[in-house]
Design a protein around this nucleic acid. Structure first.
Length: 579
RNA sequence: CGGGAUGUGGCGCAGUUUGGUAGCGCACCUCGCUUGGGACGAGGGGGUCGCACGUUCGAAUCGUGUCAUCCCGACCA
């Protein structure tokens, strides 16, 4: 490719609306352009990167025995009603009507469609197991799209779905996919961590996420991990053992149960200060709204609630903390007069009370009594009605690994892939069945496996960049090398550059020659920004028969003959791609 | 959904307070000059200021409405 004809416009400045490095550089280097909120044009350079990631994914999926197909982007409401998700999916599902006023949606994921395909085509146990996948655009109408390609509304995803006859078969395919995913991300030059996670709205039981660990602020997930063993988990799923804390009020002189005045203690801090007790002695009571019903969550005062865990505990689809008005409303209905800071399960009727495991160990503790400016001290579990004890606690760094007891660490991660065990969550309601050996109809045991292709590209930038621009791993770089003649009006430089260009092309290397009549500074800056893994500079030193080979990743510059540079690049690229 | 802010050529911005018919840098075109880290000079093309209505002799500028975009929050009693 000739740089003079390459469709790319690099910008002198970062776009004003970009926050994270991948967004900034992808726009500045001319890879993407925003069309509307959360929706981007993939310009030629970007499309080359995306196709490379797609192809690596495709090769590894095929190698793992999966079969590619392509499903429609527009889907009919009827299928979504069968699974029950038309009602529960919420506003992220982009709904529309056709000219006949029939309701449709844009696919945010394809469980419904693939299940309908499977039940039409997979009638016998003899055909199973099967794994089908596609690579396609998805649309999710995010509340707040941001971070460029990392959290867009339209994005490219590889989604695979497996169908089998048993949990054993699913376990096997799940591990098979986990290995395929490791291969894919390794080949993309992106080290990932496979972490346990919550299965969220898609449902199912077992699930893992593949996280790219970065030091940039683009990671939206907290990942807890242990250096001493293999434990790692997303914050919505992580568990831990707690270090020792004061959990018996007797240690602070709170042996006797009584209600005391605690004026203006709206927060845990204020309450602790007033009563001279540590926060670990307080039974914190939070009001949540789960699917528009209030629930009470109890947790030790020094700990925080992980909402996803709580959501699962009450089997809700949506959960959020109650507003001041909702609390007021609740208190009125319950016949109490107390505001935030004094809410309590004591005396509440007809309301679900979920207590975190940390509450179990409390003795002679402090808890509200639904009376303004009062708390009960020396309280015990027998004073409270609790529906169930569940771990609803948000893990914090420094707490102890559930497997080996060493302190856990936390880091930011970008989720680029996930795998779920769906079981019969979709096959049952959609009556997607096969006939077993006995001729009996059985629902498929399903798994689903996703990779955010466009997000992976952005994550690669987050993981590989410097002040000057992107440093693509060779396997997913739009081109492998750029040949830069410093002065285009110098015949020797140009003819040597053209020769190198031609030789590289013939060797199957993806090469760009910067034939623009620009000053060298412009060419070098663009090359660094766009992120070519290698640059061969043909300049003045050509009179000594030397050109310069620059490695973008390390910045290393070596002088050598044009022939040496050519064969080095061929060697480097071939060896990198064979990995 | 709540709060804040912004919409002026492809990108980044000034002008709006104190209405007078649009400007700067980059990018783009032409010529010259230059060629190892975003040169320079000269000339040039492109926008009616998100949109609508209104006030006015006159609106980018004032008013009302509307659309869009971005940031923060939706967080712990």
């Amino acid at each position: 490719m000739r740089m003079s004809k390459l469709f790319v416009q690099t910008l002198r400045e970062f776009p004003s609306d970009a926050e994270v490095v991948s967004h900034k550089f992808l726009v500045k280097a001319g890879y993407i352009r925003k069309l509307t909120s959360g929706v981007y044009n993939y310009l030629p350079l970007m499309w080359r990167v995306l196709k490379k990631i797609e192809n690596i994914t495709r090769e590894e999926m095929d190698k793992a025995g999966a079969q590619e197909l392509l499903m429609p982007f527009v889907q009919p409401k009827e299928l979504w009603e069968e699974s029950g998700r038309w009602e529960v999916y919420g506003k992220e599902l982009m709904r529309l009507k056709d000219r006949h006023n029939r309701e449709m949606c844009l696919g945010p994921t394809h469980e419904e469609i693939i299940t309908s395909i499977a039940r039409d085509g997979l009638k016998s146990y003899k055909q199973l197991p099967v794994n089908l996948y596609q690579i396609q655009s998805k649309f999710r109408d995010e509340v707040r799209p941001r971070f460029g390609l990392l959290r867009g509304r339209e994005f490219i995803m590889k989604d695979a779905y497996s169908f089998g006859t048993s949990q054993e078969e699913l376990d096997k395919e799940y591990e098979n996919m986990a290995q395929a995913y490791r291969n894919i991300f390794n080949r993309c030059g992106l080290p990932t961590k496979m972490v346990q996670s919550d299965s969220g709205a898609i449902g199912g039981s077992v699930s893992h996420e593949f996280m790219v660990i970065t030091d940039t602020d683009a990671g939206e997930n907290d990942v807890f991990y242990c250096d001493d063993c293999d434990y790692s988990a997303n914050s919505n799923h992580a568990v831990s053992k707690l270090p020792k804390a004061v959990v018996d009020g007797a240690e602070c002189g709170l042996k006797e149960k009584k209600v005391v005045d605690t004026p203006n203690t709206f927060s845990i801090d204020e309450l602790c200060e007033f009563l001279k007790v540590p926060p670990s002695l307080i039974c914190k009571c939070l009001v949540y709204i789960a699917d528009s019903k209030p629930v009470l969550a109890l947790i030790r005062g020094d700990k925080q609630v992980e909402e996803t865990k709580l959501m699962n505990a009450v089997e809700a689809i949506e959960i959020r903390i109650a507003t001041a008005e909702e609390i007021e409303d609740l208190m009125q209905k319950q016949g109490f007069n107390a505001a935030r800071g004094f809410i309590s399960p004591i005396g509440m009727k007809d309301i679900t009370v979920i207590a975190d495991e940390t509450i179990k160990d409390l003795k002679n503790f402090v808890v509200g009594v639904n009376e303004q400016d009062k708390h009960m001290v020396g309280a015990n579990l027998s004073d409270i009605n609790i529906d169930k004890f569940v771990d609803i606690r948000l893990v914090e760094a420094g707490e102890l690994c559930p497997q080996c007891g060493k302190p856990l660490k936390v880091t930011k991660g970008i989720e680029v892939g996930n795998i779920f065990q769906l079981g019969t969550k979709y096959s049952k309601p959609m009556n997607a069945v096969y006939l077993d050996q006995n001729g009996k109809a059985q629902p498929y045991v399903m798994g689903c496996y996703g990779i955010g292709i466009s997000r992976t590209a952005a994550a690669a930038v987050e993981a590989h960049y410097d002040d000057w621009g992107i440093k693509w791993p060779i396997a997913i770089a739009p081109y492998h090398v750029i040949v830069v003649p410093v002065a285009t009006n110098d015949e020797t430089q140009m003819s040597v550059a053209e020769k190198i260009y031609k030789d590289l092309l013939e060797a199957g290397i993806e090469v760009v020659i910067d034939d623009r009549n620009e000053r060298p500074g412009v060419k070098f800056k663009d090359a660094d920004l766009i992120g070519f893994p290698y640059r061969i500079t043909v300049g003045k030193t050509i009179v000594d028969g030397k050109v310069e080979l620059v490695t973008r990743e390390t910045g290393e510059k070596v002088e050598m003959t044009p022939e040496e540079a050519t064969s080095k690049v061929i060697e480097f690229v071939k060896s990198a791609l064979s990995k």
